[in-house]
Amino acid sequence: MRAPVRARSGRPAAHGLERWAGVIAVLVFLALWEILPRLGVVNEFFTSRPSLLAVAAVEVLASAQYWSDLALTMQEFAVGFGLAVVVAIPMGLLIGASPIARGIAMTPMMALYIAPSMILLPLLILWLGVGLASKIAVVFIASYFPIVINLLAGMDEIDGRLVRVGHVFGASRLQLFSTIHLPATMPHLLVGLRLAVGRGLLSVIAAEIFVSSAGIGYRIQMFGNSLRIDRLLVYALTVSIIGYTMSRVIGLLEERWGARSVS
């Protein structure tokens, strides 16, 4: 990912403005956000202000409701995502092992990988009701297909010669799997997991906005309806922090097991 740095070696080192541009931009943004509503240029009712946001954050974080909403959303996400990982990995390995199975399964899987999984939400609600189950199901569907599809893409790239050599030298199936298949598919699997985390999180919030009586998505929707933009933003920022944290965790795994060569 950092390969482009080389392309810049011909340029002088970052001077002051360049280095601090990000920080300055954020400060300017916050300042404008605070000042413009106060001057009446934009309606505070719709934009809130950073100072109001800070007050709202303290209030919200001190409430027990916030933590129970957070726990509920994370529970829905964790169960759906966990199930997807547990089912998708063996499924991908099984399908990938047989060209015919893959030929048959690929088209419907690809179709569901491409289609936004949220469109299945009304159907899942019809099947499973408006409670926890339909949310877990939509997270499962959103996370399952990226994992399987990327795993299959990874298995495609395994060098057949390596497998044969291993075979000739008497490696057992388990040894072949752990020394050749697993390391070769790991980077693709991690790409799949990264996509799955993003889509899963999106789905759980979307499902809660669509229909629910608690959870982060529900609260965002509720505060939007009652125009409590300050509280809405506290909950929306919570989602950002969760998303950021998860993508960092995957990033760490990628540093350890991801693609070593940057293409």
């Binding site: 541009a21 719709f46 919030i205 809405l232 909950y235 929306a236 950002s240 998303g243």
Partner: peptide, 28 residues
């Protein structure tokens, strides 16, 4: 580079926020 650095924090925010969390804001 200055433009990249200026945009960086906002891009990171957009990248880690499931955009749907901002949907109720757009409705408002």
């Amino acid at each position: 580079r200055t433009v990249e650095r200026t945009l960086d924090p906002f891009v990171w925010f957009l990248y880690s926020t499931p955009a749907i969390a901002l949907y109720p804001l757009f409705v408002a």
